[in-house]
Amino acid sequence: MGDDSGLWLLALGPAGAAALYWALYRYYRNTDKSHAFEHETTVDAKPVTGAEGKVGQVTGTQAPRIGGDNVKAYRHRVRRVA
């Protein structure tokens, strides 16, 4: 009787691991509660509007840095939370 009494404890490990895996899978995947966007949502498409005006122009890449960057100003970029 002493040998069989702890056997259920050994079976509890893999069964608990399988139950935990299934619970986490169901929690994060929740496929039964997912929303089929393509089938359940209506989208009213409208014609594309806009202008063809030129905004700006970049010629060449001579400057090694972007003007006004704050890479080296560490204390200015990052502030301690009070």
Rank of each mutant, 00 (worst) to 15 (best):
M1I: 13
M1T: 13
G2N: 07
G2P: 08
G2W: 13
D3L: 11
D3M: 12
D3H: 14
D4R: 11
S5F: 09
S5K: 05
G6K: 12
G6Q: 06
L7T: 09
L9P: 03
L9H: 04
L10V: 05
L10Q: 01
A11K: 00
L12I: 05
G13P: 00
G13N: 08
G13H: 03
P14W: 00
A15I: 02
A15G: 01
G16N: 00
A18W: 06
A18Q: 04
Y21M: 03
Y21I: 09
A23H: 09
A23R: 04
Y25K: 04
R26M: 12
R26P: 02
Y27A: 04
R29P: 00
R29T: 05
N30I: 04
D32L: 02
S34A: 08
S34F: 07
S34Y: 03
H35F: 06
A36R: 11
A36C: 05
F37Q: 13
H39N: 15
E40C: 08
E40W: 08
E40L: 11
T41S: 10
T41A: 06
T41Y: 06
T42R: 07
T42G: 10
V43R: 06
V43G: 05
A45K: 13
P47C: 11
V48Y: 14
V48I: 15
A51V: 15
E52N: 13
G53W: 08
G53Q: 09
V55Q: 12
V55W: 10
G56A: 14
V58W: 12
V58I: 11
V58E: 10
T59G: 08
G60W: 03
G60F: 03
Q62K: 15
A63G: 07
P64I: 02
R65N: 08
R65D: 03
I66N: 06
I66Q: 05
I66W: 04
G67N: 09
G67S: 12
G67L: 07
G68D: 00
G68W: 00
G68Y: 00
D69R: 02
N70V: 04
V71P: 03
K72H: 12
A73Q: 10
Y74L: 14
R75F: 12
R75S: 07
H76K: 13
H76Q: 15
H76R: 15
H76G: 14
V78M: 07
R79F: 06
R80Y: 13
R80L: 14
R80K: 14
V81D: 01
